[in-house]
Computed example of a mutant assay.
Amino acid sequence: MADERPNMPIPEETLNLLLERLEAVERHVADGRGLLEDSRRYFQELRQKELELLQKDLEIERLKRDLYYQKKLCEKEMEARSNALEEKCRFLEKDLEARITRERELFERRLAAEQGLWAERLAGEQEECARRLADAKRSEGFWARLIRMLTWS
């Protein structure tokens, strides 16, 4: 098919206008390509950041689980130590009670021995006093008899 339009020369002004428009379209396309490349780069960066964020979220979750596990271990250890300390306290209390009982018994034996010693000393001194008193009464009896004899005459 033949073009039915007549071949007319295009004025230079129209050509210049078309060239300007074509250059503007090329600049617009180039800008669009630049924006598209920027968009792709930003999209890649965004995906990379999302992956990093996801990895950090996973790391946070892992750390939370580890922390929970460590907390439970610590609680169990504290409970075990508490039980051990309570058991040790009960043992020490029983040991202390036994020591107090032994010391009390020892004290009571020593007290009884000391009381016996002083009771013997007291008995000895009472015997000595009774002997002296008997001697004094005998002596007094002699002197009293002598005085009576002297006064009777």
Rank of each mutant, 00 (worst) to 15 (best):
16 N>H: 12
89 C>V: 15
110 R>H: 10
52 E>Y: 01
19 L>Q: 13
9 P>K: 06
109 R>I: 01
94 K>T: 14
89 C>T: 13
97 E>W: 01
122 L>F: 10
69 Y>E: 15
114 E>Y: 03
84 A>T: 04
136 A>P: 01
113 A>C: 08
135 D>C: 08
129 C>D: 09
102 R>N: 09
127 E>D: 12
103 E>M: 09
44 Q>L: 04
82 S>M: 08
122 L>T: 10
105 E>I: 08
37 E>N: 03
68 Y>F: 10
126 Q>F: 04
53 L>E: 12
120 E>N: 07
151 T>E: 15
53 L>K: 08
110 R>K: 14
40 R>P: 01
29 V>N: 02
153 S>R: 13
94 K>R: 15
66 D>W: 02
138 R>I: 02
152 W>T: 13
30 A>F: 00
57 D>A: 14
103 E>H: 12
123 A>D: 11
57 D>E: 13
62 R>N: 04
85 L>S: 10
153 S>G: 15
121 R>H: 05
146 L>V: 06
39 S>Y: 02
70 Q>W: 02
24 A>Q: 10
109 R>C: 02
149 M>W: 14
150 L>D: 03
121 R>M: 06
110 R>S: 13
102 R>P: 01
52 E>A: 10
128 E>D: 12
25 V>G: 00
108 E>L: 11
5 R>V: 06
